[in-house]
Design a binder for these strands. Structure first.
Lengths: 172, 172
DNA sequence: AACGACATGTAAATTGTTACATGATTTG
DNA sequence: CAAATCATGTAACAATTTACATGTCGTT
């Protein structure tokens, strides 16, 4: 949230839509968290609330202390969260699942991955056409490439998995 | 948990180590959940507790009702959990992070991905040498391939990201 | 005898989701 | 003027983590 507000002041509502649209492929926040969290950040003096000059709602902007805190937070060490992939769980215990159902799920995963790929390619072309502010666009391109690599890997895997299941399913 | 117990009866402790070691790259459970969950499953008659003939602890085995429930659960529709990637978050807001720190994190991500790749390759060779029971090994191979594709994608991305940062960092 | 691995559980705290309640503003 | 979107918040619930407390067994 501090990161998003460091780009531009915005309402809690827009904060959420920006997080969904821009960070959506690697981050999320739900409404239930945003408003309480904004109130907390305000208490700590990391963000401030301006009455919006036009339109309804509160415009939140990041303060100088908020920027310092953002840098602190981003500099903190981290660990990858433990994974939970419901599709892979179903594949692993695949002999307890009807083969058609499994194939449908894989086909769906493939379609989703391909759609994601196409979307990333479009965004990539956009960013690469506009060299953008040296700071802003470069890092966004990197996260986008991560999404692209990941989506391609998922698509490749889904194809391979379907082939392997079909190949050994019919003869045996 | 029902899935793991469908392979073999085991103690709660071993259930946990099996989940870490065998499903670790796409699933996890913590101790705090396992014992209460086992008690719940026992109340519902989905697992039963045998006093272990040798050694300490309780051996839990899945019941017939438990197997039915497992199939039901695996047949349920699912949705991919919302992602949270702390590295990508730091990359996205990369202009608030010291360049060296960012490069270190990327190098670490690359090393981890390469290690993971190597581990998957070894396991893959093992599984492919032993055609195994037709049911058991095939699905395990599929989840393993998912891990391999994912790890490769992560490694490729990390390399590309480091190149892009170095390439534009020095001249500008 | 000490240590590490095996084993079982509980309690507190944190975290996050979901649903609900409400209302303003814009657009067709 | 109806519907969709923008907007703010709370409350209940669910899920999960972490720390704690305790004890056994096999090995060195």
């Amino acid at each position: 949230m501090l990161g998003a507000l460091s780009v531009e002041p915005m309402t809690g509502y827009r904060l959420r839509t920006e997080i969904v649209e821009t960070l959506g492929h690697f981050w999320h926040e739900s409404f239930g968290q945003i408003y309480p969290a904004l109130a907390g950040l305000e208490r700590e003096g990391l963000v401030a609330r301006d009455a919006a000059s036009a339109g309804p709602g509160n415009l939140f902007r990041i303060t100088a202390a908020g920027r310092r805190r953002l840098r602190e937070l981003l500099a903190e060490p981290f660990q990858q969260p433990a994974p939970r992939d419901p599709l892979l769980l179903r594949v692993f215990f695949g002999h307890h699942v009807e083969p058609d159902r499994l194939r449908d799920w894989l086909a769906e995963a493939l379609a989703q991955a391909e759609t994601a790929c196409a979307r990333y390619e479009v965004l990539r072309a956009e960013i690469e056409r506009a060299p953008d502010v040296a700071t802003q666009g470069r890092f966004r391109l990197l996260t986008l490439l991560a999404g692209l690599h990941g989506a391609r890997a998922r698509a490749d895997w889904a194809r391979e998995a379907m082939d392997l299941l079909d190949g050994e399913g019919a003869p045996g």
